[in-house]
């Protein structure tokens, strides 16, 4: 039997496996550090939680060739300007409620989750909620009694009552508003807001 060439030997591939894995992983770690610094709340791509005090829209950006969140002037949620800390507390309550009620096994958030109900990435901006003056109130009513306020567009598919309290509903709405301000590279595509074109 002839000698196995080095490029087919076990020891060569053992080293390859180790180096390729280590190299890829190292790159991933470096990219992770960079990404973390760019998605922390309070950066360009992911705004501060206090963005819920502002008007938010999602409009087509000519230079980017996709839609981008646009932050406008003051538009306090539930009629009150919150401090950064208060805003974070409210959004945190919203996020914890969203996990506790297992929303993501019906809905998608940022496109991840389940496909039984609408994507919530830009739900705050959905034209079905009407003008901003009534939006928080309508959303609160819906979240606290989705069955009674069902729309279903002829599908008969209703969201069940999940025992969401008024406080939790406000938290969820704050969370949804904050989430709609995240720069998601143009996802969802072609989403037309009530205010925008």
């Amino acid at each position: 039997m002839e000698q196995i060439p080095f490029w087919a030997s076990k020891s060569f591939w053992k080293k390859m496996a180790i180096w390729v894995t280590a190299g890829s992983f190292l790159l991933l770690i470096i990219l992770t550090f960079d990404t973390m610094s760019k998605v922390t709340a309070g950066t360009k791509r992911v705004p501060d939680y206090s963005v819920i005090n502002k008007q938010i829209d999602y409009r087509y950006d000519e230079s980017k060739h996709h839609s981008m969140p646009v932050i406008g002037g003051d538009a306090p949620l539930f009629g009150k300007i919150l401090s950064e800390q208060e805003a974070e507390q409210l959004v945190t309550l919203g996020k914890k409620t969203i996990q506790a009620k297992n929303c993501m096994n019906c809905h998608t958030l940022l496109g991840n989750g389940a496909y039984f109900a609408p994507d919530l990435t830009k739900a705050w901006l959905d034209p079905a909620w009407g003008p901003e003056s009534v939006r928080p109130m309508l959303m609160k009513m819906f979240l606290m009694d989705p069955e009674g306020n069902a729309r279903t567009y002829g599908s008969g598919r209703k969201m069940p009552n999940l025992g969401i309290t008024e406080q939790e509903a406000e938290g969820i709405i704050a969370f949804l508003k904050w989430m709609s301000s995240i720069n998601t590279n143009g996802f969802p595509y072609n989403f037309k807001t009530a205010g925008g074109q």
Partner: peptide
């Protein structure tokens, strides 16, 4: 080629 080489 790897198959041939490794099985020799």
């Amino acid at each position: 080629h790897l198959c041939v080489a490794t099985h020799d």
